[in-house]
């Protein structure tokens, strides 16, 4: 197995998770993943060196997702109501979840990226490297986005009832 294949199989799911959380759609996520690894392939083909492939891949993924979302803000055709596989979830919980997902997709792409990386269990240092937000500002940024979401959710809840 050459170095590209190794990177591809080791990182495919990690990249896919981020792309899917960003786009909310499996097909779009797969397209993004393909583009990301195509960039990696080109870079390695042209003799480019990547010291931290993991960081590099996340960075490229984040940028591609944000570019895509900026170009077409309607990019996210949410698969929210797709599955009935969660029988144990009560209707109320399902509704709450949909409200949260709606609020998440209303965030600015650059804000959503932070929440996606945060949900992946990244450290502030890793979030900073992948998103380009200054390390010292990560805590403040997360705090601010969570506050924004809290406000949004309260608003959406009021609209509902």
């Amino acid at each position: 197995m050459n170095s590209f294949d190794k990177l591809y199989y080791e990182n495919y799911h990690k990249v896919y998770r981020v792309a899917l959380k960003m786009s909310g759609n499996a097909q779009n996520a797969m397209d993004i993943v393909q583009e990301v690894f195509l960039s990696l392939f080109d870079k390695l083909e042209n003799g480019g060196e990547i010291i931290y492939p993991g960081t590099w891949l996340y960075k490229v993924t984040v940028n591609k997702c944000c570019d895509g979302l900026r170009k077409q803000m309607r990019f996210a055709t949410l698969d929210v109501a797709a599955g009935n596989e969660f029988h144990e979830v009560t209707i109320e919980k399902q509704e709450t979840r949909q409200i949260i997902e709606k609020a998440l997709f209303e965030l600015h792409p650059r804000e959503r990226v932070i929440m996606v990386l945060y949900s992946e269990g990244f450290s502030y240092k890793e979030i900073s490297e992948a998103s380009g937000v200054k390390f010292q500002s990560v805590g403040k940024t997360i705090s601010r986005i969570l506050e924004k979401l809290e406000k949004k959710l309260k608003g959406l809840n009021n609209d509902l009832y």
Partner: peptide, 27 residues
């Protein structure tokens, strides 16, 4: 609240699917 949001974002990934073979051609 942080946990709730993390949980909700993670819920967007219902399954990972299988890894397709990489084709170095733009789709």
């Amino acid at each position: 609240f942080s946990q709730l949001i993390i949980h909700s974002v993670n819920h967007l990934v219902k399954d990972h699917g299988s890894i397709p073979a990489f084709a170095p051609v733009k789709k």
